[in-house]
Design a protein around this nucleic acid. Structure first.
Lengths: 143, 143
DNA sequence: AATGCAAATGAGAATGATTATCGTTCGCGG
DNA sequence: CCGCGAACGATAATCATTCTCATTTGCATT
């Protein structure tokens, strides 16, 4: 169990409050890498911390804007967040069990840049997800 | 103004009803290629057709399952549909004006297949969007 | 062309995710 | 230790979408 790190919040221009530290700690030291607002809310609740759902949503959005987290809009309507570790990557999601794997492919990245340029766009960000079924042997995850 | 085409519905196993014909006509002969359920609802309403919003949602989903339309989940929480013309492509969306352009890149497609295989996934579908700003000269679209 | 029935529709309620409101509490500089 | 504005928690509100159910319609049959 590592200690909390208020300096990360400070440097992001956010004052160091209990809910923010707890959410950040969940992402840094928790077992789940990809979590929705509801996931975070439940996990905090289970560990005895009484944090409001509205606060969870606020904090996640602030962290995203501060660059601490990255938001993903997978299918299913809910946003999923993960720690921003500087290394961009895309996702492949199992439609059976919800398991998520990350990947990065420089060929895809460079093609995207080229395409955007050809079409006269200044690229801001992109979103690439592959949806499929992971092989039965590794599939038994939760949904 | 082309005539409606009930045989498309027949062959899709859907009986030919007024709402379905109107929605299909909007996609085939309308000016917008990419439309949300709300867009379709408003456009039908403006042209004097009284179609319920629930019906629009139902019909869009049925058309998607029948393979007549393709659904896209762009950022912003709402689904957008377009006519399925057999040619797969991805999208680049202007964050300023909402303008959408389509593109297809075989290099990206093949890389995706390879990645899925390496990670042990059977690929079902994928979703790739690039978000950016289109150059000011072409930007003046509606949002 | 009249009849019957299951499928489809439309209006509005219900749902799920997310955001806004507002009175109370907390972090932190003085 | 005080005070103030930022942050919080509970809850109401909003948005997109789905569900419910009474009514209407497509269409095959007399």
């Amino acid at each position: 169990m590592n200690e909390l790190e208020p300096e990360h919040l400070k440097s992001a221009g956010l004052k160091s409050t209990l809910p923010r530290l707890k959410v950040l700690d969940l992402f840094k030291n928790g077992q789940e890498r990809h979590m929705s607002a509801e996931d975070v809310y439940q996990l905090l609740r289970e560990s005895g911390d009484n944090v409001g759902l509205a606060t969870v949503y606020r904090v996640l959005t602030q962290f995203e804007q501060a660059g601490l987290l990255v938001r993903h809009n997978f299918e299913g309507g809910k946003s999923v967040f993960e720690l921003n570790e500087g290394t961009h990557h895309d996702h492949i999601v199992c439609m059976q069990c919800g398991h998520v794997e990350e990947f990065y492919d420089s060929a895809i990245e460079s093609r995207q840049k080229k395409i955007a340029a050809e079409l006269g766009f200044t690229i801001h960000e992109h979103s690439l997800q592959i949806y499929g079924d992971c092989t039965k042997t590794k599939c038994p995850h939760r949904r």
